[in-house]
Amino acid sequence: MKLFKNCVERLCRACLVMTAVALAACTSSDPVQQQSRTVASAAQTAALVTDAWMAGAAPARYTAATLQSLAETVTGADRQLRSDASPEPGRRSEVSAAMTRLSTAVKDAEAAVKAGSRPQADKARQDLNGAMADLTVAAARYDQPQS
């Protein structure tokens, strides 16, 4: 019993020291890069779920709910990006503009699914592709070192 207690106490002390080391070892990445990745992933999900709906493999209710949730994610990331104080507002606004276009495309896809309109969904899908390409370019430009 005493041995067990001592063992636990010593290990707890060792844990505290290791926690401090682990905390120091961890680093967080740039918020613009982080938000861009979140939005890119959400956009790819939107494309996949819209394709699945158009192929008759995903129910409309589920597709619409997913697109609605994804639109909220994109809008939230965009809002957060705009509220962040950044030393490079010009480059950041390009990323933000691409996110806004993406958000609109996802909302259009959601509206198309709710209306049950395949042509409308097809159009939203094309807009999604364009906006995703814009985001990729804007994010890559943001990553480049400024001359």
């Binding site: 992933s41 493999a57 949730s69 994804l70």
Partner: peptide, 22 residues
């Protein structure tokens, strides 16, 4: 498909839909 972040439970069914359809 480039979906690197799974932070929404609605994304999970998409694992099986492309394989088994509906």
């Amino acid at each position: 498909h480039g979906i690197s972040q799974v932070d929404d439970y609605n994304q999970l069914p998409l694992m099986l839909i492309p394989i088994f359809g509906f």
